[in-house]
Design a binder for these strands. Structure first.
Lengths: 231, 231
DNA sequence: CATAAATCGAACATCTATGTTCGGATTACT
DNA sequence: AGTAATCCGAACATAGATGTTCGATTTATG
């Protein structure tokens, strides 16, 4: 739903009647939910699930692409709110851990919405929508670099790519049952902290809650002494 | 094209006439090429590009899914040949570098074929086809763990996931121009070597060819002293 | 060269999803 | 209460893709 300024509508416009606004909200909420379940959900499915006629939906969103765009924007906004409420003020390592923890929840829940968007929208658009979110990660990386905690021998944007790539990979592994949802943040964090360490430097231990038992984390590795040093 | 044993045909069967075998080959080659360009390429496109009637194609591959399956298998076989010819006998770090270098080429070239397969085939099938390839990475990781070079505090399969996730992420970044194709292997390797390092241990320098200038690798970072230690 | 195998185009049959149009029935707003 | 906005279902229009069937033609192969 493009406004005159070319923006995408994610909240019902003022001029409209109350029932119209309600419907738009319902459609958007439902669209996100449906796409999260099945990225190939059709407009028919979404309209039905929203308790709305197909025609009504089309009267608010000209095309499927427009609907999916709006759903994506709404998802990202939701994400941004959560991230804004996440404490990333502490030292970079701590900040990264918190950021990963929050981001993981979102990626895990809404991965399919992104998938749907990737099939329907041009990649520049998707990139653009993610800008605010990416900048949050970027600023933590910058702080970590200045403090010497994170490596500076690789491009910033590559470190960002690494972070999001791992989250999505974990989401996929989780959805196919190869890892447990609860252990994902720990895996991602442990991997990222190491990945962000410069050659020649020592990898930090992830602080915070006591780590899981190695038997739970590992899958029958050959190593006799599994955990680091271990004492 | 399922044989009586339930396998998927990737080479033309003996019984058939020579022109049939030639066509099957052409179709498979073309399918891989077409899908690599556009993962949504239709059967019509592929038949036309292969210089073959649509009916002929369907006479060899019952459904689109079957064709894509065969194309995927062929791609993986190609990959496996390349990997088999890659020297991974040396010490684990060196082996990983070589493996990444070879794998990157394949992922970069044929990423879209996998994408097409992911849309058309059940994920277990895709997993299954990748088995041999994954095992190559796995065995290097196991060796690296035994030698103490790679961390043992995370599940093997997660390290594998990490490796492939980064390659695909790099492929995407490359295809959208955010990184240069030539620098991808270096980025992936540098990141993986760190990611595979245990907490408390020191990240190895990637050996081998002299690294690029930091200005080329980096994107205007704020850090004054960019490269590690630097002397 | 004779036969069986294979190709080919064209047409047909579905199917699914997207969008559109219409007119009547509701429903919000003033 | 009156009016305009909105909803709704049903039907239509399109479009693209997948498969299938047919009969005629070409081509490998023994």
């Amino acid at each position: 739903m493009a406004t005159s300024s070319g923006q995408v509508r994610t909240t019902a416009p003022r001029g409209r009647r109350a029932d119209a606004r309600r419907n738009i909200e319902a459609i958007l909420d439902t669209a996100v939910a449906c796409l999260a379940r099945d990225p190939e959900a059709s407009v028919v499915d979404i309209a039905a699930a929203a308790g709305v006629g197909r025609v009504t939906l089309y009267s608010h969103f000209k095309t499927r692409a427009e609907l999916i765009d709006a759903a994506l924007v709404r998802t990202i906004q939701h994400a941004d709110h959560i991230l804004a409420a996440t404490d990333t003020s502490g030292e970079p390592v701590r900040a990264l851990i918190n950021l990963v923890s929050s981001t993981w929840q979102i990626v895990h829940q809404f991965r399919n919405v992104l998938l749907a968007a990737q099939r329907e929208l041009p990649s520049e658009r998707i990139r653009g929508v993610h800008n605010r979110v990416l900048r949050r990660t970027q600023s933590i990386i910058e702080r970590g670099r200045r403090s010497g905690a994170f490596r500076t021998d690789l491009p910033k944007h590559w470190l960002i790519t690494t972070a999001f790539s791992l989250m999505h990979a974990a989401a996929e592994d989780a959805s196919s049952g190869r890892i447990k949802v609860e252990q994902a943040p720990a895996l991602i964090t442990a991997t990222l902290l190491a990945a962000f360490t410069a050659p020649g430097a020592t990898v930090h231990d992830p602080p915070g809650p006591p780590p899981q038992l190695p038997q739970d984390l590992d899958d029958g590795s050959p190593a006799g002494a599994s955990r680091r040093a271990s004492g």
